[in-house]
Design a protein around this nucleic acid. Sequence first.
DNA 1: TATTGTTATACTCTATAACTATA
DNA 2: TATAGTTATAGAGTATAACAATA
Lengths: 147, 147
Amino acid sequence: MPATPETCAREILETVPLVMAAIRCEMRRIRGSDLTIPQFRTLLYIGRKPESSLSRVADHIGLTLPSMSKLVDGLVDRALVRRVESRDDRRRVALSLTREGADLVGRVRAAGRRSIARRLSPLPQEARGEMLRAMQALRGLFEEDRA
Amino acid sequence: MPATPETCAREILETVPLVMAAIRCEMRRIRGSDLTIPQFRTLLYIGRKPESSLSRVADHIGLTLPSMSKLVDGLVDRALVRRVESRDDRRRVALSLTREGADLVGRVRAAGRRSIARRLSPLPQEARGEMLRAMQALRGLFEEDRA
DNA sequence: TATTGTTATACTCTATAACTATA
DNA sequence: TATAGTTATAGAGTATAACAATA
């Protein structure tokens, strides 16, 4: 097996969607539970970047401003997100998770970790070390361009 | 770094969505181009499992039968999918890609591979070998339950 | 009678356009 | 005048219900 960039790329292109499907499936099981995927992605993003403006979130999730505004309405109604107007610029809005929202995200993440860990358990120690290093490398390569 | 299943799982949960986002982004760039994500996933699935019935595809993509029926209408209209009634059971339908559909899928796959390979190119040879083995292991662990 | 798929209808999500408020 | 966000309206996409055809 020649481990060229192309060989690796082919394997990644096969594997990543497979793992992603499993993650999504697990999340669906927990997820609060009538949340749509975009709503859930929005929670995750706001959790990662608190005090985000609406535009910023809309841009990241890939929705228009009006759509995101309505989506956030729903999350505020469910008491998962807090929407406060910014002091410095009163046009702006600052979004953050409520305690309840953060709890939900935490529960889903934990469930995801448990589910993946269960699958990984048959791997020998050495293979897990390799896996960890590979993931860290991959993450480094794909993380940069999110700025 | 203790490479427990939990540590690996955490890293996978961070990395896989990141890579998946990049793949989706690349696909969006090529994709034929007014195809929705479910339409495109349907093409991929039919490409992998030709002669699939509508129910089978609907089940895999996670849509109801009526919705999938309508979605496939669109793909047939665009001449990407062929829908023929099965000889053995005339209620059934057998779906496959047209030449055009297969070409589209092939182009998108190739573009995805190139894009990932480009990112991987800075990795030293040894790291690529590790990456390849890790992906193969991961794929094995997540592939089984698709039957 | 059960199963595969389609048609009819309603609802949700998202987008474009028009608007309000602040800078 | 430009920018951040909301409200109004319209167009996709999906679901549930009712139906047609085959097994």
